[in-house]
Simulated scan of single mutants.
Amino acid sequence: MISRIDHIGIVCRDLDDTVEFYRATHGFELCHVEVIESQGVREAMLKVGATDDGAASYIQLLEPVREDSAVSAWLAENGPGVHHIAFGTDDVEAESERLKARGIRPIFDPPGTGSRGTRVTFLHPRDCHGVLTELVTLP
């Protein structure tokens, strides 16, 4: 089952500039930067705060590194802004199967590897009232 909001994904044109904005404006802590070759993005994770169970919530900033990536196409069509919401779950495979049984289509089936060694899948926005939704299991 879903246990928390893991992060909000935001697409940007200039990752370094956008990281500096969130650090200077809101005081968020930069805790991870990685290129995810399989998705054609460079990401930065900014820690927003901890929850009662010790888990954190994050803002994930995404900058496309290839013209043929899905994020690059999204940026060209929509401009910078909120891209997706990610929910944490203890078992992304089981949660994906549960939702698939309800008619919600996973985009990565089976789930794949995300940043920070996480297991992830995305759920089709047409099945989630127009919201691209990610499921994340921490390593």
Rank of each mutant, 00 (worst) to 15 (best):
V33I: 13
Y22S: 08
E77C: 09
E77H: 09
G112R: 12
G117T: 00
S57C: 10
E34W: 06
F28P: 08
F21A: 14
E37I: 01
E43K: 06
H129E: 14
P125Y: 10
E63W: 04
K47S: 11
E29D: 08
D16T: 10
K100F: 08
R102Q: 15
R42N: 04
E43P: 00
S69P: 14
P106W: 04
D68S: 09
E29H: 05
P64L: 04
S57T: 05
S96N: 03
P106E: 07
G40S: 11
T89S: 05
P139T: 07
I10Q: 10
M1V: 14
H7A: 10
R119I: 11
P125K: 13
L46M: 10
I107A: 01
T137G: 07
G81N: 08
F28C: 07
V19G: 01
G114M: 10
P64V: 03
E95S: 15
H7V: 12
T133N: 11
G103C: 08
A101Y: 01
D68V: 01
G114W: 02
A24K: 05
S3W: 12
V41F: 03
R119T: 07
W74S: 11
G112L: 11
V11Q: 01
N78E: 14
T113K: 07
S69T: 10
P110M: 09
D127T: 13
G112P: 00
S38Y: 04
L30W: 02
P80I: 06
A44S: 05
